[in-house]
Amino acid sequence: MTQSGQAPILEIKGLRKEYGSTVALHDVHLTAYPGEFTVILGRSGAGKSTLMRCINRLVTPTAGEVRFNGSLVTENKRALRLHRRSIGMIFQQFNLVKRLPVLKNVLTGVLGYKATLPAVCQMFSREEKLRALECLDRVDMAHKAFQRTDTLSGGEQQRVAIARALNQRPILLLADEPVASLDPTIARTVLSYLQKINEEMGITVLLNIHQVNYAREFGRRIIGLAGGVITFDGDVSSLTDDILSSIYGGRPEDTYDE
């Protein structure tokens, strides 16, 4: 999948993360290029979430380096804020503020671009509101913009979360098990929105998932993660059952969701 001639959007070298005496990530090397749709496949506890959180520094790595869009991701607060706002993130439990209207949740995506004071006073311009609506429309949720978020179904909430991430104007989207708590039909809808965003807007997508069938359906490049080690990195077409059992350590059929 390597698009030669293009600078990588993400370069991870020798990444290691320890929690006490357990090693969550062990010497991970990973390079991603703009426009890729990459699936990180592995069972729960393989280190997928930790890997993702090392990219936007929600988790501080023990060793190794992460380069995003050419520059090193560090602890420097100002630089980190700039990094983070161009990386959208989508969570398993949506992590929306349920008591707020949908549109306000989407407007929070733009906070990384705003000064603290007007944002804390919840002042958003008409232009910002229109942009948030446009982001909602990309996931076909504009008609629910003024409802309280907790009146929406799980799938709808995840689409709002995608709109919030889009409102960050990201160049990289991290999706951490975005459909693990959704039923299969709705899961496909949500994943196809991610696919559409990748294809139409050219945003690089990194998708953590544990179900092999979704990985096969939506992924182009697959990275297999087991016990904090990358055991496979290649095109979805070369993902054989042998490789799957090396990722899952068991019969791959057990990991199908339906």
């Binding site: 549109l103 008409r126 509101k129 229109l130 609506l133 446009e134 429309d137 990309r138 076909d140 504009a142 008609h143 913009a145 003024f146 196809s192 929105y193 559409k196 139409e200």
Partner: peptide
């Protein structure tokens, strides 16, 4: 996925902007 909205995603489309404005104003 909804074809109509996909077609409307051209940001330069004036109709599309007007549609969003109407929607925003319809809130209140």
């Amino acid at each position: 996925m909804n074809e109509k909205s996909a077609a409307a995603h051209r940001a330069s489309d004036l109709d599309y902007r007007a549609r969003l404005e109407t929607l925003l104003d319809s809130a209140m």
